[in-house]
Design a protein around this nucleic acid. Structure first.
Lengths: 148, 148
DNA sequence: TTGAAATGCGTGAAGACTCACGTATATAGA
DNA sequence: TCTATATACGTGAGTCTTCACGCATTTCAA
């Protein structure tokens, strides 16, 4: 039982390392950055707030703020002030960002194709993912109850 | 294909977070530290070199050196100079470490039991793990070839 | 035996992440 | 309208990890 979980964690670590190297070497972005850009590209108009982005990649908004900075400097992302809500800093993928993302996608697909075959059902994995992510959202309530 | 891999990585991250909190809260050790101690306990006599330990938990020897320091301070581990080889710093689990580890094991088992059911074959996962770890070991040769 | 290469370890520097906190803006209720 | 709360963001401090080195010790080959 525990062994299965530990093995899973090890596997994830190994895969992440395998993805990180080629991306960093070829395009100068880490795998984390790739995922951030990928996530951004999936928002309507490739625009999203820090909080949305953070939620979708499983990071803190502050971590997103920091991760975005170098990507802006490289011209892959620009941030625009929200018009309706002045608190918002909307990150938008630039054209250069889209090009980079396309290249990176190809690299990632290559690496993934080179992984040992895994006979895991995508459906089951997705269900497990939901099972893990869901309760985290509703966790807010019990925590408050515990504090009060 | 890619989606499956990404889901797997997300799941690993979520599980790690779930394990980290209870351990840190109850026993003051991170999940990484727990794994280090666990790994150490599995060596004969609960003694191991930095390099061995590093290899078994997927870290750098220097990372192990640093990770071990606070655990030593807390009395869970002591390091002894190797008698046959004076370069070695052998880490050994103390009795206090064993007690801690037993408690932590219980906590981990609890958390794992609370995870959503995962219908993944342990055998298949182990095979994937070998497939990923194995090539890394033999990677030394091609790398050298590339350099020369 | 002796010089060169390999091995084990520890440290400084840098990167990435979280937490805690403060600021600016928006919103809801008295 | 005015005040309290919530939201979105950014920064400083702390932790953990890797990389690049350098030192001490061992091993191997001439």
């Amino acid at each position: 039982m525990n062994a299965l979980v530990f093995t899973l964690l090890d596997i994830a670590g190994l895969i992440e390392k395998r993805l990180d190297r080629p991306l960093a070497g070829a395009r100068g972005v880490s795998f984390r950055e790739y995922r951030l850009l990928k996530s951004l590209s999936e928002f309507p108009g490739s625009r999203a707030m820090r909080v949305e982005l953070a939620q979708s990649v499983g990071l803190t908004p502050s971590a997103v703020t920091r991760a975005l900075k170098p990507l802006e400097k490289l011209g892959y992302v620009v941030t625009e002030k929200g018009e309706r809500d002045a608190r918002q800093s909307l990150a938008r993928l630039t054209q250069a960002g889209e090009v980079l993302l396309a290249d990176a996608d190809a690299i990632v697909a290559d690496v993934v194709a080179g992984l040992p075959a895994m006979s895991i059902s995508e459906g089951q994995l997705a269900e497990l993912h939901r099972g893990l992510a869901g309760p985290a959202a509703s966790r807010t309530v019990p925590l408050r109850a515990a504090i009060v």
